[in-house]
Design a protein around this nucleic acid. Structure first.
Lengths: 105, 105
DNA sequence: CTTGACACCTAGCAATACTAGGTATAAACT
DNA sequence: AGTTTATACCTAGTATTGCTAGGTGTCAAG
């Protein structure tokens, strides 16, 4: 909720969302909310800078969709982004396993 | 590893460790390493400030053990800490579930 | 014609794990 | 005897990052 638990995991979520197909920022927010069952209801000030970061790192690429009624910046995974996603998924599984083991769950 | 994935989850781990019995800081580091299967090999500069923070918040209490060959500051859970642990465990379960759902795992 | 949903953006804040340094004792090795 | 290693504590400063709080603009609905 209002704590810092998401830190370091947001990029993984964004890459996961975009692995299911290109999407613009606002739609990413909506997907995050729906697919997490309402758990991840994140403000724009969180998502947009994160998308910019990932693009700057070469994990995402974007294009402006001018055909839509409103201007939209559509993001999609690069090959490097796909690679990073696989790596991050493995890291997440190891991380959550380690937490569970440590916490005795 | 070297990323920020631990952020916001360390307190939960520390409370979990100390729920199994009082321990001093150096032993907590050792427990974290062992119980996580080597995944959490955390530097002292991470653990000591975190323990101080938790004590300041009233989740831990400490006493100096002078009987040991070297001086040791032994931490144990308070009632408030026990409560917080239960809450954090539920939050962790919800969080990891939400991540898995979002990532499609 | 104003409210709300859509759709983008950024400067600064707050929190936190970590780096890099420090002190000190006991055991083990050379 | 002297040096290294493991034990055991500490803190000032750094870097990253999610978020707050503001801003701009379009379009549909009331």
């Amino acid at each position: 909720m209002n704590n810092e638990t998401l830190k370091g995991h947001l990029d993984f979520l964004l890459l996961s969302i975009l692995a299911n197909g290109a999407a613009h920022g606002y739609a990413v927010i909506e997907s995050l909310r729906q697919r997490s069952g309402g758990h991840f209801d994140l403000p724009e000030g969180t998502i947009y800078p994160a998308l910019h970061r990932l693009e700057e790192q070469g994990l995402l690429k974007s294009r402006w969709d001018e055909t839509a009624p409103r201007r939209r910046k559509v993001y999609s995974l690069t090959a490097k982004g796909q690679q990073s996603l696989s790596k991050r998924q493995a890291e997440w599984l190891a991380f959550s396993k380690a937490i569970n083991a440590t916490a005795g769950i």
